[in-house]
């Protein structure tokens, strides 16, 4: 595109993104290649039906079923499929395990890759330039932005996602949760604990 074209475009393009998407959607509908009801349906799925609750069920199962845990760490994709979690942006899932000695944290430095079927859509901070740029060079400082202090004797591992591989952190099971059911355990698993910018909640 020449610079002339750029100037030309800038004089026409709506400054409001709401108008700009309205224009595109309306054009696609006119051409018969987009069904607005299907757009509504997809929005509803990601707003109300897919979210970190899915990942929490995976984690709770891994905490209570040692065989499932092994399968999850050996082949994350197959293990989460056992629970029915598959779909766009979840084609290849790798689970990384937090231990006494290792804390894992996940990022997508280039954009926003994230395991949609397990965690839903990423929060704004995950997609921010600040998080993407800094967590790979000063992860401990970034974790402190989240109020998480990882002790110096613990190794911090940062996993950079890409469009082929999506990571989920298997957080440590909190102390005092020994008697809880799988469903109760799932309540302790936060989104941040599965990205690695947090840890699982302590039982009430």
């Amino acid at each position: 595109m020449s610079s002339h074209d750029h100037e030309h475009e800038h004089s026409l393009v709506p400054s409001e993104p709401a108008l700009r998407i309205k224009a595109l959607e309306s054009l696609l509908v006119e051409k018969g290649v987009l069904d607005p009801a299907a757009v509504d349906e997809i929005i509803d799925v990601f707003e109300h039906r897919v979210g970190p609750r899915n990942g929490a069920l995976v984690v709770a199962k891994a905490w209570t079923d040692p065989e499932f845990r092994k399968r999850l760490l050996a082949d994350g994709t197959a293990a989460v499929r056992e629970l029915g979690f598959l779909g766009m942006q979840g084609e290849e899932v790798v689970a990384v395990e937090n231990t006494q000695n290792v804390h894992n944290v996940v990022v997508c430095t280039l954009c926003s890759c994230y395991p949609w079927p397990l965690l839903g859509l990423p929060p704004a901070w995950y997609k921010s330039l600040a998080y993407r740029s800094r967590v790979v060079i000063e992860p401990r400082k970034v974790l402190e932005d989240f109020g998480l202090k990882v002790s110096d004797d613990k190794e911090v591992r940062v996993w950079d996602s890409n469009s082929e591989v999506r990571y989920i952190v298997l957080p440590e099971r909190p102390a005092g949760s020994e008697t809880l059911s799988e469903a109760e355990l799932a309540e302790l698993v936060t989104r941040e604990s599965m990205i690695g910018t947090g840890v699982a909640k302590a039982p009430a």
């Binding site: 901070w125 921010s128 600040a130 800094r134 932005d145």
Partner: peptide, 9 residues
């Protein structure tokens, strides 16, 4: 890069 400021959850 370190020029983008704090992460704001």
């Amino acid at each position: 890069m370190q020029c983008f400021g704090a992460v704001l959850p």
